[in-house]
Design a protein around this nucleic acid. Structure first.
Lengths: 150, 150
DNA sequence: CTTAATAGTTAATTTACTTAACTATAAGCT
DNA sequence: AGCTTATAGTTAAGTAAATTAACTATTAAG
């Protein structure tokens, strides 16, 4: 099939693009989070996921592809920094619900906003059609590699 | 401008997509490289970059956003594994040219090929138009976040 | 009501990365 | 020329991060 070649090309392009691009975006965030708030990238990610509704250590570990003890330790640091609150579930006392605090929401918005502005500056030259193409591609990749699909 | 909203949306989508998708792809490669060849992800990346023509420790450090000593140590391991050869430049003896060996080329193709097949399987349901959309998006992202553009 | 399973944490170890110091070579200056 | 500064890379020491293994608490299953 001709589609096989296209598929192969697309995968090659993915590998050519995502590692360096993600590396740069990551680098920018790390720089903001570290410099402004003394947060590591992974701490920021965990915080962001809790913010987005991932509220247990196990789920966070699954999503971040790191071990549960690692997440637990990171959460501990975030609690000590006053960014996260732990609450044991009333119905199943094994579960610990995680929530971000008000100051975390502000911090998150500051770091994330700064990155967004940096990205927006980089992407300023893209027109409407190009942005829509990127959005469509993101949507497809998200669905294609969704762990829930397995 | 209406484009501002679109841009903002696109950035949000990027953040919603790339970390988990990259995490999964990365996880697959780590699994292949670790399980089959006892290579870490970063060792695989360094190898891949040398293969693609990035041939000095400094450049590799720049691209991978890690320190030069870290790269130097990784290269040392790769040399010991018989995957990389160091050669000092004849004209400027400070430079060390890095090259992958034949066995590295084979190893790389095995790991990378296995990942490619895994990705191809995942992406099998995408049609020609969708693949082209992803390719176009990759192309744009690559250009947009190219460090050389700064 | 004992055993197995699940969620999370703690502890010990290992791995990986960083900074600082050092070697070797090249380029710039007066 | 010869002294100074800069560059590429490595080595060494210290730090930070993640992993596995072991443990607690709670719930579900036989």
């Amino acid at each position: 099939m001709a589609n096989d070649d296209l598929l192969r090309q697309t995968i090659e392009k993915f590998w050519d693009t995502i590692p360096p691009v993600w590396g740069r975006v990551r680098g920018n965030v790390r720089c903001n989070a570290t410099h402004d708030f003394n947060l590591t990238l992974i701490q920021f990610h965990i915080l962001r996921h809790i913010w987005h509704g991932v509220r247990s250590v196990g789920e966070l570990a699954e999503e971040q592809q790191i071990s549960r003890p690692a997440v637990s330790q990171i959460v501990q640091i975030l609690v000590e920094k006053g960014l996260v609150i732990r609450q044991t579930d009333a119905h199943d006392r094994r579960y610990v619900h995680l929530e971000i605090t008000q100051s975390a929401a502000e911090l998150l918005e500051a770091v994330y906003g700064k990155n967004r502005r940096w990205m927006a500056e980089k992407m300023a030259s893209l027109n409407e059609e190009q942005l829509k193409t990127i959005q469509a591609a993101m949507e497809m990749l998200k669905k294609t590699f969704d762990p829930a699909a397995d």
